[in-house]
Nucleic acid binder design. Structure first.
Lengths: 368, 368
DNA sequence: GATGGGGCGGCAAGCGCATTCCATCCAGCG
DNA sequence: CGCTGGATGGAATGCGCTTGCCGCCCCATC
């Protein structure tokens, strides 16, 4: 990529590179009008485009914002990405994107790559995992994050803080609630945009109980996946608050196919509840899983809300035309992306996300 | 973003920066084993991470790949993005992302930004518009692209070539077919990953006709939107091939809401066809529009395939759990993204995309 | 044992730009 | 009329790294 350089423009305009630099790229010292005109004209006629690399090197600030997600083709992340991108554009930043499939090792690689690019800030979205097999990965991710921060970068986590050795316990059954964890400063000193997963899934359980459901089952992601674990916990708390027995938890992959698989496995439970004259209410910890469950049930001839009820979480945009309308917890994903980007770039603490329970047809009162 | 520099590592290891550079970052000349060890040890202990900006400046190659899409939250683009990202990762490139809402002006800005970053290659996805109002935008996009290419960048367009003044006619009713346009070299000398929109929509029309449908209507995007126009044309050709009358074309926004709107408008036609004992078959030029149509019809109490038939185009992943199963044309979007990235980076011509008609329930023979 | 060549570090020159410091010029003031 | 101070353009330096070139040493060769 050879290209027109500043000094060529300067020569063309008959001024020094310093002067050209001052008129072309915002400086505190703006040269006289006449000279400025000459320089601008020269720049236009030569088709000058500043070399951002060189500028970055000279100013030691790149104007780059890194975004790390599990999977950009997942509507959850692509909505967030849209928000991040839109904020980045408004702030005149350029977006770097990396997808990691959710593995801490890939995430570390991404942080490393962005550190190498000297990104001004990094937004890291996606659930953490407290799985034992991820301990080394989490540790090295944490180290990499520390290094990035130590070098003056801004890191913002969407949802959960990074998993430290100490915190690896946090997702476990008897860990501290959301609030306590959020209050504890992240060891890596990263910003965290909190998503009230626990209280929202509790709200969902309450809403469902108030609608008259009394038998529940939970379709969760693999053990150790923080987002899933926390949502399960919140939901169970809600049931407990209403004096209902804890729901059985069925674990599978944290995606549509996981839901599909769980759906098959839950057929029996749905039918036996029906046999007893009640409807089982399912809570899938994310919408994609819920959609998988619905697909599996449908294949077995079971429909919501007639034969069972089901709720998801996230309110991804895909739901708009999904049948039956899926009860879920709306997360303002694009907005989350926007404020994540802004917070990361400014270094200010982001406002926690606001969610809300959205009741739809999939948990309607039985029609008959 | 201050950080450990190469020369600090070199000093720590007791060697010159040149030597350190050679051992740390792939050079043809690799220093002796003993020295290499010292340098590596120093790099690790200091936590050295090369400054990609400086490297880029020195090597004049950045390892950056730019991706420009209309909307990253649209599953069509996010699937492509996934493919691009995955190829980029494998090739050791970093991805720059920009969303433009499909306006040529924003696209130009994105190209400019990526040029400024000296991206090695740019993938530009999304339909072009031959609309009169976009003429100036297209022209300046073309200029910007030319400039990028002149500076040694590689540009790859997904779908259509850039719109030149000359080519602005191409999308018009009596323009040359796909093949002729593809054969004409792009003025900007950019690569083009061809998507056989015309022949595939023709295939779709043939398949539908063979299924026994004889009355068609088309739900298209706004006039001048190339992808839409070409698909319409191909479909009409297919009908013509079967001796069927041309379908009425109804235009609205190229998205879900446009489809919804068109769906309402088409209620009459569906009902009157039914009154005459036949079913109207709708072709929406993309899946999102088709989904909007289905939603609108459902609201009016009309269901596919019982009351009408409908087909879409793209086979976005959202369709997996859409009811009814939507007949469509499958485009291997992720694969398209992958080969787009590879071609852009290598400068080689990409293989044209392979699509196929997928018949599903939405165009099933009437059940009764 | 002298000579040529190959291998290996180091030196230094940039890559394109921002910015500090300096020289210059002119206006204004005493 | 001489001096000072502010404004303005230019020269020089450095951001962190790569790489062509030079010089050194050691070994093989005659």
């Amino acid at each position: 990529m050879a290209a027109v350089t500043l000094s060529e423009v300067a020569r063309e305009a008959g001024v020094s590179p310093a002067t050209a630099s001052r008129v072309l790229n915002g400086s505190t010292r703006v040269p006289g009008a006449e000279i400025a005109e000459k320089v601008k004209a020269a720049a236009v006629s030569l088709g000058y485009i500043p070399n951002a690399q060189a500028q970055a090197l000279a100013r030691s600030s790149t104007g780059l914002l890194g975004l790390i997600v599990h999977d950009i083709a997942d509507p959850y992340f692509s909505s967030i990405a849209r928000g991040v991108q839109s904020a980045a554009r408004e702030l005149g930043k350029t977006l770097l994107l990396s997808c990691t499939e959710g593995t801490p090792d890939e995430e570390r690689l991404a942080v490393e790559a962005f550190t190498s690019r000297r990104a001004d800030a990094i937004v890291l979205a996606g659930s953490r995992s407290t799985n034992d097999s991820d301990i080394p990965g989490n540790a090295s991710l944490l180290r990499e994050a520390d290094r990035y921060l130590a070098n003056g970068g801004h890191l913002l986590l969407v949802g959960h803080p990074l998993i430290s050795a100490r915190r690896a316990e946090a997702g476990r059954p008897n860990a501290a609630p959301d609030s306590a964890r959020a209050a504890r400063p992240d060891p890596a000193n990263a910003l965290v945009l909190a998503i009230p997963n626990e209280s929202l899934s509790r709200d969902l359980a309450l809403a469902l109980a108030d609608r008259g459901f009394s038998r529940f089952a939970i379709v969760a992601g693999p053990e150790g996946l923080l987002t899933s674990d926390i949502r399960v916990k919140g939901f169970q708390h809600g049931l407990e608050d209403r004096g209902l027995p804890a729901a059985e938890v069925r674990r599978s992959a944290f995606n549509r196919d996981g839901g599909f698989e769980a759906g098959h496995a839950l057929e029996e439970a749905v039918r036996s509840a029906a046999a007893e004259g009640s409807r089982l209410c399912l809570f899938a910890v994310n919408d994609r899983m819920a959609m998988g469950v619905v697909a599996a049930m449908r294949r077995r001839g079971l429909e919501a809300p007639a034969d069972y009820a089901i709720a998801g979480f996230d309110d991804i945009n895909t739901l708009e035309d999904f049948v039956p309308g899926l009860t879920t917890v709306r997360l303002p994903l694009e907005e989350i992306g926007r404020s994540a980007a802004v917070a990361a770039l400014t270094g200010e603490d982001p406002p926690p996300a606001q969610g809300e329970v959205v009741l739809r047809e999939s948990t309607a009162k039985a029609k008959h």
